[in-house]
Design a protein around this nucleic acid. Sequence first.
DNA 1: TCGCCATGCAGAAACGTGTCTTTCCGAAGC
DNA 2: GCTTCGGAAAGACACGTTTCTGCATGGCGA
Lengths: 358, 358
Amino acid sequence: MSRSTGRRLGRAGIRDVAAAAGVSITTVSDALNGKGRLPDATRSHVREVADRLGYRPSAAARTLRTGKSGLLGLTVTTYGDEPFTFTEFAYFAEMARAATSAALARGYALVILPATSRHDVWSNVALDGTVVIDPADGDPVVTELVRHGIPVVSDGRPGGALPVTGWVDNDHEAAVLGLLDHLADAGARRIGLLTGNTTDTYTRLSTTAYLHWCERVGQDPVYESYPAHDPCAGAVAADRLLARPDRPDAVYGLFDPNGTDLLAAARRYGLRVPEDLLLVCCSESTLYAATEPPVTTLSLKPRRIGTAVVQILIDAIEGLDTGRPIEQVIPTDLIIRASSQRRSPRTTVSPPRGPTGD
Amino acid sequence: MSRSTGRRLGRAGIRDVAAAAGVSITTVSDALNGKGRLPDATRSHVREVADRLGYRPSAAARTLRTGKSGLLGLTVTTYGDEPFTFTEFAYFAEMARAATSAALARGYALVILPATSRHDVWSNVALDGTVVIDPADGDPVVTELVRHGIPVVSDGRPGGALPVTGWVDNDHEAAVLGLLDHLADAGARRIGLLTGNTTDTYTRLSTTAYLHWCERVGQDPVYESYPAHDPCAGAVAADRLLARPDRPDAVYGLFDPNGTDLLAAARRYGLRVPEDLLLVCCSESTLYAATEPPVTTLSLKPRRIGTAVVQILIDAIEGLDTGRPIEQVIPTDLIIRASSQRRSPRTTVSPPRGPTGD
DNA sequence: TCGCCATGCAGAAACGTGTCTTTCCGAAGC
DNA sequence: GCTTCGGAAAGACACGTTTCTGCATGGCGA
């Protein structure tokens, strides 16, 4: 009695439902979770009473008992001082969105967490697993998580023998090589690169692929690098690249804003695109379909990556061994627009593109 | 004994730490949380033992006991069928990022949740409070949350007498009126509007403000609306707007991609910007500093909004009554660039802008 | 010398579930 | 008629914390 009256100021618990339905706690639990062997009459009766009381099981208690929280961490490595830069490039936003949708479809939710190993937050939330975007070599957060038995799946091949459960990545080398070939086919004689001076895997792989390609075709590398987290450094670096005495006649920009940066720099130097300068940049933004001229972009397919990462992670958590591989390579997509084609003399207005649909 | 040996396969619990340190569970808890009255010697000893065992308190158990989870929900109303569209417009991404940072700084983490009232996910996570972006009138999710005693703070003034704890918003009417005045000052005779046919508050307020302004200055409204969630519909609507017999000589685009859409449409019709057509669009993207010409944008200051929303929410959760108002209006920022100025005959190249810093 | 307070720590009761084990009861088998 | 069997539901414990209460001990003033 002291119990049932004392509970008045809290939410309705499973005890209240049991009392109201005239059954035991066990029966309520079994009825709501479809577990035990109960006649349908009891089941529906309990469900009806629970609904009437507005009963919601306590997530904390359930988590404590079952050991599963239904929460996945999402961590983005941070460049510069801002805690989160995932809006800097549309890639991160797209990837996060796809991951969120995929997780939700399987009953999980995503918690956004910092890449720094501030234990305060990390240990204050019960995680079933974690998605790590572009982990650094020997990332302390990842090693700590794995040491505690929490599955970790990374977007981006992990370096430094990081003990992740699985990973998904593009074949960055192949993507860059293919794109450079495309530029060469379009008539480029000297291809330049606008790249970052950060040490993340994407930048490193792309840059070395560029250098390999140069070596293969016997071209001197022409590149400028800048801190990718600085929004104005890109424009300056684009300017530097086009101001060089060995000015390239084609440029690949590694980061999302490089397309407009390079277009602006080209205008400043009176260079016409694509006549005087061929352009490709890595971006997920549909804005490049409507620039003057439209810019050829390399899409890393963040939606497919985000989805795949979450599927692998949840499969690992639930212990179900689907045939799905634990390490997946997602093909990239070169969306060819006017900026990388010298063929068509008049600028073809590309029709509005619908949703890419994957 | 059966206890301590049986725990071998799990993580180290508080009991293990207590046993290893030769103290009681209470002492461990107090030492780690800085609670009781203990000599510093005991404190450091317990901490050292806990570190050695790699002890991490169970978030679930703590949540169950204290009733606080340290988790805040983040919900974005969804247009169309995609579960999440917060990447569609840079606004959402910026806002989410700022909110995440602010929450983290105060020891909270954000959980991304769907706006649909699928109870599965919502009731599976223990929330201390929720941020709702642009809730619909009488939103069922919000009412349900409030009914269960969970504080809700919304980005966007709630309509339909929604019982939220607080809200933060821009003064959309004032922003639109000021911007239209700016265009009129620049010489616009007939200002058109590119708007959405969705019923969200932002679109509605902005559109009615436009209609009011037209009425006040005695101009016939010229606008086209389209489903804002459809990525290609914007370009088509921009085209429609400039194809009208009563073609406007200035346009305000309500959504992020409208700037490039309108630039592209203007090119198709041979209209020069800003000579033949003045342009403003609402966007948070820095890309518009580098377009040809640079486009004047209206910034809604999502970073300030995201921060303010979280501060209000956490204040409410922790019950501390700061002087901070529960309802805040954040001023907008009109970033004037070449597209809305007829004065300068030659296109001035705006210098690269640094981080906006708020 | 006795009582009192401050200090340092331990015991045990919750928090709200899930689930293993047990009990109860009617019906069927020998 | 007694046992067995199986269905339906109740009891009780455990999950790992936090925290309230309470027991010692020793120093101090009266």
